[in-house]
Amino acid sequence: MSGAATRVGFIGLGNMGGRMTACLVRGGVEVLGFDARAGAAEELGAVAAADAREVVAGSDVVMLSLPDSRVVESVLYGDPAVLEAVLEGQIVIDLSTSSPASTRRIAADLAARGARYLDAGISGGAAAAEKGALTLMVGGEAEALDEVRPQLEHIAAKVFHCGPSGAGHTVKLLNNFLNAVTLSATAEVMVAARKAELDLETVLDVINASSGVSFASLNRFPHIIQGDYLEGGLTNTLMLKDVALYLDLVAELGVASLNAPGPVAAFGLARSLGYADRISNTVVDAIGDVSGGVRLHDASGQETA
């Protein structure tokens, strides 16, 4: 499979899928795209497909960027014509955050049709997707991954082969759980710092030079304290979904999850207070709401109603 001649099909052109598609198009890749929202493919410079079946039938490599396994399964199994359109030797890449068990089932069904399925969890958020600098954690055949590296290089700066089918989505769930823990915990700490009338930039400088440092403190909160929530990434609803998938995973593995109550409570609170479809960074506002109306970026430095 030659990188220059390969046509990529892309199903799911939302916040992340749209950004990845734009990177492919800018890199000179011909993309056949489909999204439930009319006009999405054309806006990104992709060729518009009428439906998922047309994408599968007309592409050498198919990429999926969908909310969860339920939606992935509905796309692949909802219309029998989609699986019937799978081509011998085709590679399908699931860039969603999906259940490893569902991933293995789909991989087996595609293998029976002569195709290969790679589960490729992504990390880096909207900013990395915009620049084509995502981190990918991939499960499935190493040979299949090698074949699609030329296409993946347009969207990712780092690509890790994590093991057989399901391994990529397993690593993704492990990573996302740590992301949820550190984001929600740092949000709580920063609300406390505001209420203690501390200078938030100084607090972050201390944390980032100390043992409490995390991706959230390094990359998110320097923006959040200025009122920039870095919109466009994972929502509170999707973050809570990812934590639930992690809990299913560790239950299946027989691992006790002693740290799950914090992020479950935090992102559940955000959903209940009206932040369900806002970026998960707004969990800090949900915690602030129940802590006296605190906003980190309030110019006066006072609590807001």
Rank of each mutant, 00 (worst) to 15 (best):
A5M: 14
A5S: 11
V8R: 00
G9L: 05
G12H: 03
L13T: 00
G14H: 08
R19W: 12
M20V: 00
G28N: 13
V31C: 13
A36E: 15
E42F: 04
E42H: 12
E43Q: 07
E43S: 04
L44P: 00
G45H: 02
A46K: 00
D51I: 04
R53H: 11
V55N: 08
V55P: 05
A57N: 12
G58I: 04
R70G: 15
V75D: 11
L76W: 01
Y77L: 10
Y77S: 05
Y77V: 12
G78C: 05
D79W: 04
P80R: 07
V82K: 13
V82Q: 07
E84D: 15
V86P: 01
I91W: 01
V92P: 02
I93T: 02
L95K: 02
S98Y: 01
S98T: 04
P100Q: 07
R105A: 04
A108I: 14
A108E: 04
A108V: 15
L110D: 00
L110M: 05
R113W: 11
G114I: 00
A115Y: 00
A120V: 02
I122N: 13
I122W: 08
S123K: 06
G124R: 08
E130G: 11
L134I: 07
L134P: 01
L134V: 03
T135Y: 12
G139A: 07
G139L: 00
G140S: 06
G140A: 01
A144I: 02
E147S: 14
P150Q: 09
Q151Y: 01
L152C: 03
H154R: 14
K158V: 15
V159C: 07
H161D: 13
H161M: 10
C162W: 02
G168R: 07
H169A: 05
H169R: 06
V171F: 03
L173N: 02
L174Q: 10
N176Q: 13
A180Y: 06
V181Q: 01
E188G: 07
V189M: 07
V191L: 06
A192P: 09
L200Y: 11
T202K: 12
V206C: 11
A209G: 12
A209E: 06
S210Y: 05
S211F: 08
V213T: 11
S217E: 11
L218R: 10
N219Y: 12
F221G: 09
H223E: 15
I224Y: 09
L230H: 10
L230T: 09
G232S: 08
G233Q: 11
M239L: 07
A244V: 13
A244M: 08
L247R: 14
L247W: 06
A251S: 10
E252I: 03
E252V: 02
G254Y: 15
G254C: 03
L258E: 13
N259P: 12
A260H: 09
A260R: 05
G262W: 14
V264C: 11
A265T: 14
A266V: 03
F267R: 05
F267M: 02
A276G: 07
D277A: 08
D277I: 11
R278T: 13
T282K: 06
V283R: 09
D285R: 14
V290L: 08
S291G: 10
S291Y: 05
L296E: 14
H297D: 12
S300I: 12
G301L: 09
Q302H: 09
Q302E: 10
E303P: 07
T304L: 14
T304H: 09
T304D: 03
